[in-house]
Amino acid sequence: MKLSCRTFLALALAGLSLNALSAELRVITHSSFAVSKSLIADFERQNGVKVSFIKAGDAGEMLNKLILTRAQPVADVAFGLDNALVARAVEAGVVEPYTPSIDRDIRQQLPGGVVSVDYGYVTLNYDKAWFESRKLPLPRTLTDLTRPAYKDLLVVENPATSSPGLAFLAATVKALGEEGAWKFWSALRANGVKVAKGWSEAYYTDFSKNGGARPLVVSYATSPAAEVFYDKKKPAESPTGNLFLPGGVFRQVEGVALVKGGAEREAARKFVDFLRSEAVQKDLPTQMWMYPVRESVTPDPVFRHAEKPGFDNTPDERTLAAKSRAWVARWTRVVLK
């Protein structure tokens, strides 16, 4: 914004801070995005901008909003596009490629000029106390989930609106093949699987650890660590555990991208670099419960409860781009209709 000398003087005489004239950087995110307020404040001060966050639900919902508003973009930066969604975002023309200035010691990458920020593993979590109190053995295979002993015990997220929901679906297709996956999902439906709109609903409403009725939930390998971190008593063991079932593990890489047609391009690029900075990479593990992509950054010690699987069932991005929408459509017919 250019100011005339007269306007500048009038503002100075009025005692107004020039910070009031800072540009607004609009950042659209999924509902789980979190970075410490002090770091955001530092970014704003150093770059002369005000960051406004737009929480748009789960990542799938966020992408849908970007697509619906692409003629008049509602944001300048989008965070939360992952390897299950990025190809769709690129195909829809809602993001612009960008090469960050911080591109060293990075574990995971994303295609299409979307910049990776964190990664994790979508998998099943279970409520330890629930299973122990009922002396029910844990399922050992995906097929076990379709057996009578596990009827009405599982909640999953809708892959049409949820990135972990899509990730779990993709993992089952990768492991079982398309026809095998539809047979599995049909059997799950018959065995009482519940479908939630997104991760927050599944984990905080339906999961038995949080007062729901379902002791099995599609979540993240880091969720048991979060349970310990937020517990005031800091238990030696997490009350929840991971089930790394063959065919049920997806390696998710999340990224940030410039929104095509967005304003404040220079500030947007700086914000992308900011999310790759050492300070943010150290902060995000206990904020968003994902692993940092910078290899040199060590997460908080509580991540000893966030074991990593020795395998995953993640389709490549090209397959996800070509097949995921058809998978979701078929899943909807099999499970919801």
Rank of each mutant, 00 (worst) to 15 (best):
L3M: 12
C5I: 09
C5T: 11
C5M: 11
R6D: 15
T7M: 13
L11D: 10
A14N: 13
S17L: 00
L18G: 14
N19V: 12
A23Y: 13
T29W: 07
T29R: 03
H30I: 03
S31P: 03
A34R: 07
R45D: 14
Q46D: 11
V49T: 09
V49Q: 08
F53R: 07
K55Y: 12
D58F: 12
L63T: 07
N64S: 14
N64C: 13
L66M: 12
L66D: 11
L68V: 11
A75E: 10
G80P: 08
L81S: 01
D82H: 04
V86Y: 06
V86G: 07
A87Q: 14
R88I: 00
V90L: 13
E91A: 13
A92Q: 13
E96K: 03
E96H: 00
P97V: 03
Y98M: 07
T99W: 13
P100D: 07
S101R: 15
D105Q: 14
I106T: 02
Q108S: 10
V114R: 05
V115S: 01
Y119W: 15
Y119R: 09
T123Y: 11
P137L: 06
T146M: 06
T146G: 03
R147G: 15
R147S: 14
A149T: 07
Y150S: 01
K151C: 06
K151P: 08
L153I: 02
L153Y: 14
V155G: 09
A160R: 08
T161A: 10
F168Q: 07
F168G: 03
T172F: 08
A175P: 09
G177T: 03
E179Q: 12
G180F: 02
W182I: 08
K183E: 15
F184L: 04
A187C: 10
A187P: 10
A187F: 12
L188T: 06
A190M: 05
V193K: 04
A196C: 10
G198H: 14
Y204T: 05
D206N: 14
F207H: 00
F207T: 02
N210V: 03
P215A: 00
P215V: 01
P215D: 02
L216W: 03
S219I: 06
S219G: 10
A221H: 11
P224H: 08
A225L: 08
V228M: 12
Y230D: 13
D231M: 06
K233V: 02
K234W: 13
A236R: 13
A236V: 00
P239G: 06
T240F: 05
T240C: 05
L243T: 02
F244A: 04
L245I: 04
G247V: 00
G247Y: 08
G248K: 05
V249G: 06
V249C: 09
R251E: 00
E254H: 09
L258D: 13
V259Y: 15
K260L: 04
G261H: 01
E264L: 03
E264A: 05
R269K: 15
F271H: 05
V272F: 05
S277D: 08
A279S: 12
P285T: 04
M288Q: 15
M288N: 09
M290D: 10
E295T: 11
S296I: 07
T298G: 10
D300K: 15
D300S: 15
V302E: 02
P309V: 00
P315G: 00
E317Y: 01
L320Q: 01
A321I: 02
A321R: 12
A322P: 01
K323F: 02
S324R: 05
R325Y: 06
R325V: 01
A326H: 11
A326M: 00
V328N: 01
R333A: 15
V335Q: 07
L336D: 12
